[in-house]
Amino acid sequence: MLGRPAGVPGRVGGGLREVRGQVGGFYAAVVVRGFRRYATYRTATAAGVFTNSVFGLIVSYSYIALWDQRPHLGGYSQAQALTYVWVGQALLMTMALMGGGFEDELMERIRSGDIAVDLYRPADLQGWWLSADLGRSAFHLLGRGVLPMVCGALVFDLALPSDAVTWLLFLVAVALGAVVSFAVRFLVALSAFWLLDGAGVSQIAWLAGLFFSGMLLPLTVFPGVLGEVARALPWAAMLQVPADVLLGRHRGAGVLTALAFQACWGVVLLAAGRLLQSVAARRVVVQGG
């Protein structure tokens, strides 16, 4: 009936490639699950699309007023500024700029001690949550991003590119931005291991994200050192960079530099997350009986 215990898995043969394939299969399955999980909430998605669209309209009219006063503010034409607004709305949930990602769940698991379950599994904590959150991002890009964008394009004259390459580069920038966004939130969530109540850190990170991603105003608008700093911080990778890629503001190799900027932050922050995770797993106490 039930089989005898297997020996040490992975040693039995199969070869490295096969093992890698299975590992990839596992994380891919988690991505798909992350996507599906949000796809089941249809009413919430519809309500979200509505909110994003209304928000987009309000911000658009404010931007129009602003750009009427200060044409070419931040180097954007009015059409470009409006496009920026709608890209922002499309990426708001994708990048979880106002929360709504995995971090609340992870912090709650740490606080309640359910993290114990995640820790004794033969899966990597960061890899697991990264996969789940990328699945969510992908869903939010499709479910909460496309329709508001279409809505914006119908109402306003947007400066959208007509060539496929720019769109493709935009998607790459969005993917990299999603990874950076995850990496930042992962660090924030892990703070709960030490603080238990991570709400304070969470709120600071959330405010910082809202401002430094360029959600309120494009970072190109800010003059001097503040602008320089804001554009160099990881949050710029979440909205400013993808928007600029879509607007075609990086010429030639400039696009690659922009993508490399995102990738660098992604690698650095993921590595920091790994480090923090291993410290947490070694030092920290899992709560509850």
Binding site: P9, G10, V19, Q22, V23, G25, F26, A29, P122
Partner: peptide
């Protein structure tokens, strides 16, 4: 269970 299968290969 399907996820468990993948996780434990």
């Amino acid at each position: 269970y399907h996820l468990v299968r993948r996780m434990y290969r």
